[in-house]
């Protein structure tokens, strides 16, 4: 399998803050389902945001789908981001818009600015968005406003949005943290099917160790901005978990 993400000596320090990432090296192949575990403040979100170029790292390199993100100007990053879906803990949908519109937001990167800002979408994109909604089981909700949905339904809309993007890589930032046990499984199953059907790569930051063991093909432990564990889920024993989640005496804690 070709590499989806190659990270070399990645380091990042927020302006006026302590270093968050310290020289990370990481290679993720296409089709992997990677769980990223670690305490809050360990640098998980920062790592994900370096990969899609929302953050420019202060050191090192992220080569995503063969291109070095940190070297790209914003216009090129936009083109790359179309192929990288992102789902969030807080869902981050546009609450006042309909479910269908929120899925269509995944097509914005492919559309001309003027017509898309007038909320005009080509018929082909609308039918694609409907297929994506069918895939996550929300067909009958397309005309509903997002704010009237439950948490699990909202997250399924977010998954449909990344499918509509045609994403090759899906970054999930604690995307199941606000959901109940059964709904967590629904979302994970959707992502697992997506990996199987489209060969997409998933990088999922999470706190739920049991969930990570069940769904991921590989688990990475991040502690104080460095990788301290990287192996298959069956090797993540309780001692390894305790080590990753141990609070260091001098960490990059907030």
């Amino acid at each position: 399998m070709p590499d989806a993400i190659v990270i070399k000596q990645l380091a990042h320090t927020y302006r006026g803050g302590a270093p968050v990432l310290h020289g990370l090296d990481l290679t993720i192949a296409e089709g992997e389902f990677v769980g990223l575990i670690g305490l809050s403040g360990a640098g998980k979100s920062t790592l994900l945001r370096c990969i899609n170029g929302l953050i420019t790292p202060t050191g090192g390199s992220c080569i995503v789908l063969g291109e070095a993100v940190e070297k790209m100007p914003e216009s090129e990053r936009r083109l790359l981001r179309r192929r990288i879906g992102m789902i969030f803990q807080e869902f981050n949908l546009v609450d006042r818009l309909t479910v269908l519109k929120n899925v269509l937001i995944g097509r914005l990167g492919y559309l001309p600015t003027l017509s898309s800002c007038l909320h005009r979408f080509p018929a082909s994109d609308v039918s694609l968005a409907r297929e994506c909604l069918a895939q996550v089981g929300l067909t009958e909700f397309e005309g509903r406003r997002v704010r009237d949905l439950s948490g699990g339904q909202k997250q399924r809309v977010a998954v449909a949005r990344t499918i509509a993007q045609g994403a090759k890589i899906i970054l999930a930032d604690e995307a199941t943290a606000n959901l109940d046990v059964l709904t967590k499984d629904e979302i994970m199953d959707l992502l697992k099917d997506l990996v199987r059907d489209t060969g997409a790569t998933v990088l999922f930051s999470m706190h739920d160790i049991a969930l990570a063991r069940r769904y991921c093909t590989r688990i990475i432990g991040l502690k104080n901005g460095a990788i301290t564990f990287d192996a298959a889920p069956d090797q993540l024993d309780d001692a390894a978990v305790a080590d990753v989640l141990a609070r260091a005496e001098h960490g990059a804690m907030k």
């Binding site: 914005l108 990167g109 492919y110 970054l171």
Partner: peptide, 9 residues
């Protein structure tokens, strides 16, 4: 963030 992350200008 979400609109930016999905490639919006």
């Amino acid at each position: 963030d979400a609109v930016r992350a999905s490639g919006g200008n």
